[in-house]
Each structure stands twice: as C-alpha cells, then as structure tokens.
C-alpha cells in the first residue's frame, strides 16, 4: 500500500472515530445541527468604555497581527472607525450629536452571502457550514481579488513580511507571510476548543455577544429579538453576520 493511501485511510478512520465519539474538539466538523455563528455588538455598552482597546489588543496579540506603522500597508483584524464611516455612511444627519466622532468596532462581517469567497480563484477563502468565512493562507496566491470584492475593507494584504512588526509573537498562532491576504476568522481556533472569540472574552463592558443564531435560547438570539440592530451596508445583499445593537 502506498504511504499516502495508508495515511489517507488512517485519517479517514480518525475522522470516523472522532465523529462517532462526538469529540469535544471537532465541534465545527463533527456533524450535529447546522449552526449560524454571529456576533452582536452593543454599541451603547461599547461607548460606555470610551477609548477602550481591549478587544483590539486581545485579538491582535492572540493572532500575531503586525503593527505596521505605514498606514498604506496596515494589517488589521478588528479596529475602531468613526460612526460616520462605519454605519451612518450616507446618513450623518441621522446621528445624534453625542455619537458624532464616536467610534465603533469594525471587523470581518462573516457575510452569509460573501462576495469575497465568490471571487477567490483558489478556494483560499470560503464560507464554512457554521457561517465562519475562513481563510487558508497556505493556498492564497495574493491576487487580492477578495480585497476588491469586500465592501467593508475588512481584508488586509501583506505588502511586506509582517514578522518584524509583531512585537511578541506567540507560538500558539502563526504569523502570516508576505503576499497573502488575512482577516478576522471569528477565532475559529478558539471556537474549535469551545472558547469564545478573543475580542468577546476581552471586552470589559460585555458589549460583544457571540453565538448561534439558529439556537433558540442563545444569548445573541435573545438580544436581537429584544433590541433594534443594524448591519453594515445591507443594500448590497451580503447579509453580514455582525449586528450592531443600537
């Protein structure tokens, strides 16, 4: 038997065992009901901790996101933008005075109908069954078609080697290499071991709620049922899965 076939069979057996045992590790892959992962950001709670960067720092530290001083080559997964740019793009007049100039979190929207995965020529980015828009930087050829397709500016391209710009790289997560695209992955590496995304965990105000929209009693479901929420640029039909609770 060829080595690759032997390994293949062994892997297949592993997968079968894992699925049968309902392994706690493979929650995304091991069958079960389909999930629709989403995030809700309570804008008011977030504003209460004015100037807070806990979520941004937690994310960028956990994922070795480089701090590149040149804004043209910046890489970012989650960051803050003025309201006028992130949500009230064409409607600054609707913003209460208190919100003008205030900042709101932006990140990959993990769209239900993502244009970025549609255009990717290699399947380096794709939507998983649980709704996470995943990235495989090993396969990315760096054509930046996904960057052009994303209506939210959520994708970053590595114009230079990012490693020198990661102050304290953690070995728990890879850095990226020059010439590939990266973005927020809803912390799929943490979801896989049953943890919440790093930003949600880090938020001191409890402003971020993460969960399964299809699960009836889930916290996010309840929050969205109770409060009014908006999404970024809904007219484009991308159906973002990051909700801004007003």
């Amino acid at each position: 038997m060829s080595t690759s076939r032997r390994v293949f069979l062994r892997l297949a057996a592993t997968a079968a065992t894992a699925a049968a045992a309902g392994s706690a590790l493979g929650c995304a892959a091991s069958g079960g009901a389909r999930r629709r992962l989403a995030m809700a950001i309570d804008v008011r709670k977030c504003l209460d901790v004015h100037g807070c960067r806990a979520c941004v720092d937690a994310c960028h530290e956990a994922h070795n996101v480089p701090a590149i001083p040149d804004r043209a080559h910046e890489v970012k997964w989650v960051w803050k933008e003025p309201f006028e740019r992130a949500l009230a793009v064409r409607e600054p007049a609707t913003l209460p005075a208190a919100l003008r100039g205030s900042e709101v979190l932006v990140l990959c929207n993990h769209c239900d109908n993502p244009p970025c995965t549609r255009v990717c020529p290699t399947g380096a980015t794709w939507k998983r069954d649980d709704g996470v828009v995943a990235m495989d930087e090993h396969r990315c050829i760096g054509c930046r078609y996904c960057v052009a397709a994303c209506p939210y500016g959520s994708r970053s391209f590595n114009f230079v080697d990012p490693r020198p710009f990661v102050a304290h790289p953690t070995s728990d997560y890879p850095t990226r290499t020059k010439g590939v695209v990266e973005k927020c992955t809803f912390c799929e590496e943490r979801l896989a071991v049953g943890r919440l995304p790093a930003c949600v965990d880090a938020c001191p105000a409890g402003a971020m709620v993460f969960g399964d929209l299809d699960e009836r009693g889930s916290e996010i479901r309840k929050l969205l049922n109770e409060r009014y929420s908006v999404r970024r640029r809904p007219e484009l039909g991308t159906r973002p899965q990051v909700f801004y609770v007003i």
Binding site: P121, I141, V180
Partner: peptide, 26 residues
C-alpha cells in the same frame, strides 16, 4: 507580477474555482 505569491500561481488550476471570474479569464 501582480501576484503576492507568484510561486503559487498554478493554484488557480490546481484548485480551480469555476465560481471565480479569474479562473475563466485564465
């Protein structure tokens, strides 16, 4: 010359994605 990872260019063929216009352009 526009590719960030030119060595992987043939991934367009290897992992052909018929949903991508770039594949059809090629």
């Amino acid at each position: 010359v526009d590719m960030g990872q030119p060595a992987r260019l043939l991934n367009i063929v290897r992992y052909a994605a018929p949903g991508s216009l770039m594949f059809w352009d090629l």
